[in-house]
Nucleic acid binder design. Sequence first.
DNA 1: CTCAAAATCCCCAATATTGGTGAGAACCGA
DNA 2: TCGGTTCTCACCAATATTGGGGATTTTGAG
Lengths: 211, 211
Amino acid sequence: MISVLLFEDNKNLRESLSLYLASTDGLWLSGAYADATDAVKLVKKYKPDVVLMDIQMPHLSGIEALIAIKTNNKETKVLMQTVFEDNDKIFAAICAGANGYILKNPKPETYVQAVKDVFNGGSHLSPVVATKVLRMFQNQFAEAEKTYIQLTKREQEVLKCMVKGMSYKMIADSCDISFNTVHSHVKNIYEKLHVNSASEAVVKALEWRLV
Amino acid sequence: MISVLLFEDNKNLRESLSLYLASTDGLWLSGAYADATDAVKLVKKYKPDVVLMDIQMPHLSGIEALIAIKTNNKETKVLMQTVFEDNDKIFAAICAGANGYILKNPKPETYVQAVKDVFNGGSHLSPVVATKVLRMFQNQFAEAEKTYIQLTKREQEVLKCMVKGMSYKMIADSCDISFNTVHSHVKNIYEKLHVNSASEAVVKALEWRLV
DNA sequence: CTCAAAATCCCCAATATTGGTGAGAACCGA
DNA sequence: TCGGTTCTCACCAATATTGGGGATTTTGAG
C-alpha cells in the first residue's frame, strides 16, 4: 500500500485526482490540500510514501515546499507536476532533489505509474521533461568529445577506490588482492587515461563519470 | 505507423521482441539484426523512425553505432537498451544524443511505450536510469551542503594546480614560489579539508567547488 | 579446445609525497 | 603599534607512488 499526499490548488483537478487515486488498488490517499504552506507539518503527520506536488501554488511555491520537505524528511519521495515546461522550474526541482517530474496529463494512469515508479526507488520523468533534462545534460557535458574509454571491471574498481582517496595498501586490502596487483592495475589505468598521477586519474574519473 | 529497426545480439530476445513489435498496432518492424556493424547502411536503406539499439553488441558497440547513426542521420531517433546500469555507459549514450535509455524489461509494453514516446519527440528513461541521470545532474549543479571552508588565496591557487594534476615542482614553478612553500601550503590545505592525500583533496575541491 | 584478454603476482630503482618542526617577512585590521 | 594571519622558506625522515622490467593463472568468447 503506497500512501500519497496531494498538493494541488486547482479545485477541480484536486478533487478528480483525489477520487482517482483513492479508488486505485495499492494506493492510499492520505490527504489532498490546496495549499503547501503546512506541507512539512502534514508530511510529519501522515508520513506519506509519495508526495504529489503541483509547482504552481498560491502561497508557498511547489519548489519551496519541495525543498522544505526534503530538508526535513529526506526519504520522502516527491513527485512534481506542472502544466508548464519551464526549463528553470525543471532545473530547480531536480537540483532540489525531486524524484520525478510529470506534466499534467489527461490520462490518470500516468499519475499512478509515476507514483509507483518513485515509490520503488526509481524516478519518473514525462517524455517531454526527459528530453529537456537530456538536452541540458548534453549542453553541459557534450562539448568535450571524450573518447569512450574502456576500463576493465577491476580497473574500474581500483579507480573507484582511488577516487575515495585510498592508498595502494588500502586498495589491495579492500579488493582482496596484493599490493603488486594494485600497482599493475594502476599502471594500466594511467596508460588508458593518458595520465601519470592519481590526482589526474581521479579528475578524469569524475569528469568522465568512469566510476 | 512507426517503423522500427532493431539491433540485439541475443537471439532469443531479438526474436521474441521482433514478434511482439511486429504484431503491435501502429508499429512496423523494418528489420532485426544481431550486429550493428552495418547500422548506418541499414538506417539509410530503411529510414526507420526509431532504432532500438542494444548497448552490448559483438563487433560495433551500441554506443559506437549510436554515434555513427547520429552523425549520419541526426533526425533518426535512437532508443538504447541494456541490462547494465553502468553510469559511464548511460553518460556516454546521453552525450551521444540517445533519445531514450531503457533497461531490458520483462514487460514488452514498456518497449512499445518507449518507442512511441521517442517517436513523438519525447525521451523515455527507465525509472532506474532516470534516477541516475537526475543524480548526476544534482551532483553537477546543486549546492553541496559544504561546510564553509576558508582557503587563502594561495591555497586556492595551489589546490587549483593540484586539480590539474601538477606535481609540487610544477606548482612551485607555476606559482613562482619554492618547492618548500608549496609543501607548506599543501599541508595547510590538507589540514583544512581534513584529508591526507592529493586525491582526496582534489575530490573535495571538485565536490565543494573550492576552485 | 584455443587463443587473447584479463587478472594476478614479483622485482628493482628513482621520485614524489606526507608529516613534523621551526622561523622570518609581509600584510592588515583594531 | 600590536597581534594575528598569511606567505614564505628550510631541514629531516618515513612512506607512497611511479615506471620499467617480467611471469603465471584465470577467464571468456569463438
